[in-house]
Design a protein around this nucleic acid. Structure first.
Length: 307
DNA sequence: AAAGGAGTCAACCGCCGTGGT
DNA sequence: CACCACGGCGGTTGACTCCTT
């Protein structure tokens, strides 16, 4: 049996708020507060709106000191830092950004930052010799797409997997850096089965069923790692590419990630260790390409979660 | 100029945690 | 302890705008 709806869906208005509705809601709350009951509020002021809708409208738009648009580089830093550390905990992230709402931050991440961090990929069709052969172009694009999707989803899913496995937060555990984790699994265990390649933390609590098949939750993640680690795939160096790209982006080298940086083994060491060590242990903010300064947010979060 | 695609963002949906009874 | 109502949250949707062809 499902939960009773919070309001009569048939009688409430949906969709964009009119200026009149905004004015009513704003005037009432500024004078009386919410009264501790959002559900009852619309009835009090004669709005044909769901209480939740009123709450959302107030928190995301009408509330004083709300900032819209034009996120600053510092705000980008905070969002990226926290997203990598804690994932899509938008309310926590937004709480670190005065004037920003969780909805705003979420939208900003999904539409801009994620693409900048995960979505921007070198386009082989541009760097390779131009070909007039349509089949070749399609083939190239296909490979590019699969690599692109793989990199992004693998990165996010590695993070998600770790969180769900209850592993230590990467922020304070460099050895748990998902990229390092993937790299280690790949580079130290070439030729082994994936389960053998998994780190102890995962192996001791494997997301696999009795048949040795990974749970649906982690299939994508492990697909990604399989593909990275497959000797025949030739794409395992894309972990390096992701790191190089992250560094390129985060160190302000936008558009300057070179051809060479994508397939050089040195990148593994440079990208993994420097990036994460800087991020986790030294001056986290400096690793994002902006002036180094203490990162009270990380500290606050560590305190908050007692890690 | 028009059509289609891509990007953006406000708003909705439904689940979950919590506090009150 | 169980139940209920509510607030909070993250994921998703859809309308709108802008861009490209």
């Amino acid at each position: 049996m499902g939960r009773a709806p919070c309001c009569d869906k048939a009688s409430v208005k949906k969709g964009p708020w009119s200026p009149e509705e905004d004015a009513k809601l704003k005037a009432y709350i500024e004078e009386n507060g919410t009264g501790g009951n959002w559900i009852a509020l619309p009835h009090k002021i004669g709005l044909k709106r769901c209480g939740k809708s009123c709450r959302l409208r107030w928190l995301n738009y009408l509330r004083p000191n709300i900032k819209h648009g034009d996120f600053t580089p510092e705000e980008d830093n905070i969002i990226c830092n926290l997203y990598i550390s804690i994932g899509s905990r938008w309310s926590i992230i937004a709480a670190q950004l005065p004037g920003r709402t969780d909805n705003d931050v979420k939208n900003y991440w999904n539409t801009k930052l994620k693409k900048r961090l995960l979505g921007r990929r070198r386009d082989p069709s541009r760097s390779q010799h131009q070909s007039n052969n349509q089949d070749q172009r399609e083939s190239s694009n296909e490979n590019d797409n699969s690599t692109q999707n793989l990199s992004a989803s693998a990165l996010e899913r590695i993070q998600l997997c770790m969180q769900l496995q209850g592993l230590p937060l990467p922020l304070l555990q460099p050895q748990a850096n998902p990229l390092l984790w993937a790299n280690d699994a790949i580079n130290q265990n070439q030729g082994q089965s994936l389960s053998d390649a998994l780190p102890a933390e995962i192996s001791s609590n494997p997301p696999v069923n009795e048949n040795g098949i990974v749970s649906s939750l982690d299939e994508g993640l492990l697909d990604g790692i399989e593909a990275f680690s497959s000797p025949s795939s030739g794409v395992h160096s894309n972990v390096n590419a992701v790191e190089a790209e992250l560094r390129g982006l985060l160190y302000g080298e936008e558009g300057q990630v070179s051809e060479q940086s994508y397939n050089r083994e040195e990148d593994l060491a440079i990208g993994s260790m420097d990036w994460w060590d800087n991020y986790a242990n030294k001056s986290p903010m400096s690793s994002w390409g902006y002036p180094a300064e203490p990162n009270p947010i990380s500290q606050d979060y560590a305190l908050l979660y007692d890690i």
